[in-house]
Amino acid sequence: MEFILSEEQQAIKAMAKDFINHEILPFAREYDESETFPTHIMDKLREYGLYNLSIPERFGGPGIDKLSHALIVEEMARGCAGIATSAEANSLASYPILVGGNEKQQNTYFHRLTKEGQYASFALTEPQAGSDVMGLSSTVERFGDEYVLNGEKCFITNASYANFFVVLAKIKGSEQSKDFVALIVESDLEGVKVGPKEKKMGLRASDTASVTFEEVRVPIENRIGNEGDGFKIFMKALSHARPMVGAQSLGIAQGAYEQALAYAKERKQFGKPISQLQSIQFMLADMAINIEAARLLVYKSVYLLQQGTPSAKAASFAKCFASDTAMKVASDAVQIHGGYGYIREYHVEKYFRDAKIMQIYEGTNQIQRVVIAKEILS
């Protein structure tokens, strides 16, 4: 077992770190306050090869290994989790096409993302179906060479900017619980309506909105995989996505820890830096322990992806533990800052708000534990 990054991976991490330190961290507060989608930062990420990270090189993507992908995501989230979420939305929407799409679909839509600079959204969650994917109410009905799509999706990242959506819907009238269809739906089709941007506690630089589909006619060639395979395709896609949520969580935790460590060395109480107080030392030590443990879980899950043996259990381990760690570390970082940690001038307040969603999206941590329990009991 190797615990050392290759020279190429170290170079990728260093490049990402340098980019984030100069192009994102100094402006993260500004984008958070204004809740502005940072289009020009997305363009720069593309320019530096730090975008569309899941897309193979033959389709214009960077063609990097999964660990390098995770390293970049970790650094982006250390700078701003909202920007990291927006950047990763294209990767998330790419996974169903990557695991279930045909060559023509991959060539068409991946090149649109890489060569034309377009945006895509992963449309799964509904108002009455979040963790319960089987409870989706969006439906498709086939008429000749078209599907008619009806339904509403909510909490869709980059919805206001998406050129196309990757959608999961149930076959209308089907008695089979897993009869779902995965579709690529162009945003300019008649009947596609994007709602107003949501006002969120965290990830404010990321665009989030609902999408309604009313009698939307989608060509059959836009179906991903076979009819009835949609559920399987989306679940496989999530096994690729969840380790990257772990990487985002890791970046938030690392950023909050670094802020707390620096502050503890500078802040003086009772005539000495608070870093000399054992109670603070123990908090910092626990942060470091849990971040390292989370890092190993995340890296293992992406290693398994790279080997072509994705593990639902490993992905859930990584996503669950890393996001719980991000929340705990961010909370303790605020505590170490005392009253200043509650003031927006200090970055730990933002890390704290951003960390919470990591325990919720792409499968709540309660659902991750259900997955883990199913795996260990089977």
Rank of each mutant, 00 (worst) to 15 (best):
E7I: 08
E8H: 07
A11H: 01
A14I: 03
A14C: 03
A16P: 06
K17A: 10
F19K: 03
I20N: 12
H22S: 12
L25K: 13
F27S: 14
R29F: 09
E30P: 03
E30M: 11
T36C: 09
N52C: 13
R58E: 11
G61L: 07
P62C: 10
P62V: 13
I64H: 07
A70C: 15
V73C: 15
E74I: 04
M76Q: 09
R78I: 04
C80F: 12
G82T: 14
S94P: 06
Y95N: 01
V99R: 06
G101H: 02
K104G: 04
Q105V: 09
Q106K: 14
R112E: 14
K115E: 12
Y119W: 15
S121Q: 05
S121P: 01
F122T: 00
A123W: 02
L124A: 04
P127E: 09
D132T: 05
V133K: 13
E141L: 13
Y147C: 14
V148D: 04
N150H: 06
K153F: 08
F155T: 08
F155R: 14
N163G: 13
V167R: 02
A169L: 13
A169N: 03
I171N: 03
K172A: 12
V181N: 05
L183I: 02
V185F: 04
G195H: 08
G202V: 08
T208V: 14
E214D: 01
I220R: 10
E227W: 00
K236P: 06
A237G: 06
S239I: 12
P243V: 13
M244A: 03
G246K: 02
S249C: 06
L250N: 05
G251L: 13
I252Y: 03
Y257P: 04
A262L: 12
Y263G: 07
Y263K: 03
A264T: 00
Q269C: 08
Q269H: 08
Q269Y: 09
I274L: 05
I280M: 01
A285H: 08
A285D: 07
A288G: 03
A288D: 00
I289V: 06
I291F: 01
I291S: 00
L297C: 02
V298M: 15
S301C: 05
Y303C: 08
Q306I: 09
P310T: 08
P310K: 07
A312I: 09
A315N: 04
A318D: 01
F321S: 02
S323K: 00
S323D: 03
S323N: 01
D324F: 04
A326T: 05
A330M: 02
D332I: 02
V334K: 08
H337I: 05
Y340H: 13
I343M: 15
Y346E: 10
Y346P: 03
E349R: 10
E349L: 12
K350Y: 07
Y351G: 05
F352G: 04
D354G: 10
A355M: 04
Y361G: 03
R369Q: 11
I372T: 04
I376T: 14
L377A: 10
